[in-house]
Design a protein around this nucleic acid. Structure first.
Lengths: 224, 224
DNA sequence: TCCGATCTCCCCCAAAAGGTGGAGATAGCC
DNA sequence: GGCTATCTCCACCTTTTGGGGGAGATCGGA
């Protein structure tokens, strides 16, 4: 049995969703809430598996409530964001907040039921148009450094190691220590890297490393 | 009427999908192909709206064929990748190749039909588990620089502008020219930025900018 | 009005970075 | 054995960078 909570400030909408879901044999609506604050409270008491969350609500919006509920963590629940429109900002904030699904309110009832089952099953679901944008953004990132990666191939192994170290924010002296070579050697390698890639200084080298995928956002803790 | 082509090296599988789709009143299967090469040929001749593409095939795999077909471009078609398993590498390669959907072969027939309609309608669709991974990867990137973004707030407006310029690979002189201020002033700002953020040199500043989201991969053409 | 923050610019100086040219050692290839 | 590529290091030099300290102007708030 999938235990669901429905959160929406409009009682009518809320009841509508609740009725549709409660009608399913394997789904049970265990709570309803009309504000973000109520939602947090109810989530803690009822520990639902799935929360259907509206975004625009008085007191506290659905995204903020989602963050709180998921951070509390005692509830191993997943959140489905429901919204009327799909402005980009909401989508990104929702994904960042930890939502498992983002669907528009105009989806057919069966699709909503299916979404609940999918998410309860560990899956995720996005409205088709949103998936499209997410994919295109992702593909852009993936494909960004293709010609750059080719230029990267002109470097020797050692030079790529040095470039990676530069992209980690290391000074020449630190690179020397890390690679167990002399400072003079590092300078030689750095010069080769810059001239082979057509760059001017190590700052540009860092940019290059990120753009071509040699360095990646999120893989380092900036604790210089 | 949605014109569909089915590509799979196993004739039985191919026929199965074709029959399911042809059974729908608004869908017409206009071509079938058993290899990537055949698919490219058929796509050019028949100009289908949607291509159901298997990945593993002899002669040329589905992803390579997808790239060729979409690059040809004369066909304004969208590709749905069908596969038995869902190894990550395939997913990323598929998205990069330009696929609009990535679904597993075990989806129920109605869902496949729905996917075809969704994609024909300009949407995109991913298998639930894949959507989940895509979201988590995306959320990771988005959330990467949260504490960092706070540190960013300690900078003044001008200092953030300077930091952005540093992250663009500009030298102090270039920044001065870009912001219409003196070189000495730039040095002052750079010093403030570094000391406020606890960084040592501009290379680390570039790293910081990428990690906190001030700079983003793919937004710049590295044409220093 | 005075204070603090910000933006602007200056001087001096030390350290780091980057360029040029050279050189020895090793390894693989024709 | 020559030839090339790579890795290692050195010396010399110029430019850039970054730090320290100071200073004038503006603006907004206490």
């Amino acid at each position: 049995m999938i235990r669901v909570m429905v959160v929406d400030d409009q009682a009518l909408v809320r009841r509508g969703f609740a009725l549709v879901l409660d009608n399913e044999p394997d789904i049970e609506v265990v709570a309803e809430a009309g504000t973000g604050v109520e939602a947090i409270e109810a989530a803690r008491e009822q520990q639902p598996d799935i929360i259907l969350m509206d975004i625009r609500m008085p007191e506290m919006d659905g995204l903020e409530a989602t963050v709180h509920i998921l951070e509390a963590g005692d509830a191993a629940c997943r959140v489905i964001i429901l919204t009327t429109f799909d402005p980009d900002e909401y989508v990104f904030r929702a994904l960042q907040a930890g939502a498992s699904a983002f669907v528009l309110k105009d989806i057919p009832p069966e699709a909503l039921v299916q979404a609940v089952r999918t998410v309860a099953d560990g899956g995720a679901m996005l409205a088709p148009g949103i998936t499209r944008r997410l994919i295109s953004q992702f593909a852009q990132k993936l494909g960004a450094g293709r010609n750059l990666a080719e230029r990267l191939q002109r470097l020797t192994t050692r030079e790529r190691e040095v470039l990676a170290a530069i992209a980690a924010g290391k000074s020449n002296a630190e690179i020397a220590a890390a690679l167990f070579i002399g400072a003079a050697t590092v300078k030689t390698h750095v010069s080769s890297v810059l001239s082979k890639l057509g760059l001017r200084d190590r700052a540009q080298a860092v940019v290059f490393a990120y753009e071509c995928g040699l360095a990646t956002v999120g893989e380092r803790d900036v604790g210089f």
